[in-house]
């Protein structure tokens, strides 16, 4: 089964960008969402992301990411909207709870930012081979390989963890634990005891990975060991300029 963050092979513009540029672009787009206070700019970033996803042939996945974030967003939106007391009251509810125009605007921005900031990271992971990220950081930025490797491993473990968690939940459902409940809070409460098996299997895994890496000369690796070069091309410059424009717009408005 394929996780939502796994690499999708391809040869689109986005795929062929230098991994470092992809990384930078993702961060610039995230940053743009947070420096701006303009709802439309944030919406624009989301639209830009979807357009990029379309060009890389992974629009379906981008929409799935949005959908899976929607539930959490709705929850955060509700919490936020009742929390903000400043501004003109739009709707007064019993127990002194009210919804204000500022609250509405703030919560909306908050949730839009969450969606807009999560997308570029997800997209970046989808179009980048995981081993390219540490490799390019070592080759182009001179980051010590050991740190880069840990970063790469962490990224690679996300889908493995997700898979393991799904397997654990499946096993627990099959023994009668009610994970198939619709109640979100109940589900969270049921998840807590499962941290133990997840931890056990993760520790075993990481241990195995560490030994295997050690045996394949992990400690011998130097900066010059990389096989791939990751040269920069014109398209990388274009992508960076595009990112800079988006950030500039965000700062200005």
């Amino acid at each position: 089964m394929k996780g939502i963050l796994d690499y999708v092979p391809g040869s689109s513009f986005l795929h062929r960008l230098n991994p470092l540029v992809k990384l930078l672009l993702a961060f610039v787009l995230c940053a743009a969402c947070f420096v701006t206070g303009n709802h439309f700019i944030v919406l624009g970033v989301i639209a830009l992301n979807l357009a990029l996803a379309l060009s890389a042939g992974i629009l379906g996945r981008a929409l799935r990411m949005l959908r899976s974030l929607l539930k959490l967003s709705a929850l955060l939106f509700l919490v936020q909207i009742f929390f903000v007391r400043e501004g003109a009251t739009l709707l007064a509810l019993p127990l002194g709870i009210c919804i204000t125009d500022l609250g509405l605007s703030f919560s909306l921005l908050f949730v839009l930012r969450l969606l807009a900031a999560a997308l570029p990271l997800g997209l970046m992971l989808s179009v980048t081979q995981t081993s390219d990220i540490p490799n390019v950081l070592v080759r182009r930025l001179g980051l010590p390989y050991q740190y880069a490797f840990v970063l790469g491993t962490a990224i690679r473990f996300i889908p493995l963890f997700a898979q393991e968690m799904a397997g654990i939940m499946e096993a627990q459902t099959a023994r009668g634990v009610e994970f198939d409940t619709g109640n979100f809070f109940k589900k969270v409460a049921l998840l807590l005891p499962l941290c133990a098996p997840l931890l056990v299997s993760s520790v075993r895994r990481i241990e195995g990975g560490a030994i295997s890496a050690e045996l394949r000369g992990f400690y011998l690796r130097g900066r010059k060991s990389g096989y791939k070069d990751y040269p920069f091309a014109l398209r990388d410059l274009c992508a960076l300029l595009g990112g800079a424009c988006a950030l500039a717009l965000a700062v200005l408005f």
């Binding site: 081979q129 995981t130 990975g209 295997s212």
Partner: peptide
């Protein structure tokens, strides 16, 4: 657990590079 890469080629390269 013992895989370090996500693509077959990179997995083979790992030790050679090291």
């Amino acid at each position: 657990g013992q895989m370090v890469a996500s693509v077959v080629e990179d997995e083979i390269l790992f030790g050679l590079e090291n």
